[in-house]
């Protein structure tokens, strides 16, 4: 069983995002980039499958930025092999291009299962998992919280709204978009990441990036709020007193 986990570099939303001079993208130089939070879940689910049944786990990511750090961290957590993909990734919100690159890589690496994050915070152009599956001609399921392997199939749990979920059986090879792993993602201590940097080798694979979304981004901007909250200011005690007044008006503080 060979599981490929593609990792995406996403901006950290805790920092304020800036927009580039042409207003065509966020400013990626200024943004703090790290692993997309759902990819961390996908990697964890893959590593749990490895722990349980001895699957082999390969991680791949587009070259540049924090790519090496992401890959070494994944190796430190237990991934077996790590590759940087080389190609034209200059249109980051074009998921067709990313999916094309991944399809090319997976075609050459071979895989029974691809686990991606269900989405990232920058999905303008569909989700990569589904685009990738469509390009590979494989079945896929999104918003999955559990993957169980059984021979030529995977049993997955797909979450719907209101706490309802569906159990599905998927014939492999398949692409699964992971929402949450079965457990909290493991942590790789800095010492282990350093060790991986010293002992492990990252491979590099040139891939096709000629996918095209058919969209033209006109402008990227910070939206004006439709209705802004009335902001309450002061010391914590003053704020608390004002909140109590608001709650009292609604008959709630007795």
């Amino acid at each position: 069983m060979h599981i490929v986990v593609p990792l995406r570099q996403s901006p950290d939303l805790v920092e304020e995002l800036q927009i580039n001079a042409e207003a065509t993208d966020i400013d990626r130089q200024a943004a703090k980039l790290g692993i997309s939070e759902w990819d961390e879940q996908a990697l964890e689910e893959a590593l749990c499958l490895k722990d349980g049944s001895g699957a082999k786990v390969t991680v791949v990511t587009a070259e540049g930025g924090q790519a090496e750090e992401l890959l070494f961290t994944a190796l430190a957590k237990g991934a077996d092999r790590a590759l940087k993909l080389a190609g034209d990734f200059s249109a980051p919100m074009d998921n067709h291009r990313l999916a094309r690159a991944l399809a090319d890589a997976i075609g050459r690496l071979g895989a029974n299962l691809v686990l991606t994050g269900v989405q990232s915070v920058e999905d303008l152009d569909g989700q990569v998992a589904v685009l990738l599956a469509a390009m590979l001609g494989w079945p896929h399921v999104s918003v999955v919280t559990r993957v169980e392997l059984a021979g030529e199939t995977a049993q997955v749990k797909q979450e719907h709204s209101g706490g309802v979920s569906a159990e599905l059986e998927v014939r492999l090879p398949a692409v699964i978009g992971v929402q949450a792993a079965r457990r909290t993602p493991r942590y790789a201590p800095v010492s282990k990441v350093r060790q991986a940097q010293k002992s492990a080798k990252l491979e590099r694979l040139a891939v096709a990036t000629d996918g095209r979304s058919g969209l033209r981004v006109r402008r990227v901007f910070k939206p004006e709020a439709a209705a802004q909250a009335e902001m309450i200011q002061g010391t914590p005690e003053e704020i608390a007193a004002k909140l109590v007044a608001i709650l009292s008006e609604r008959g709630l503080s007795r």
Partner: peptide, 16 residues
Amino acid sequence: SRLYGGKIAVEAEVEG
């Protein structure tokens, strides 16, 4: 579209 947890808006045009 609203991306980045709702923090950024992107106006895009569909060809055709």
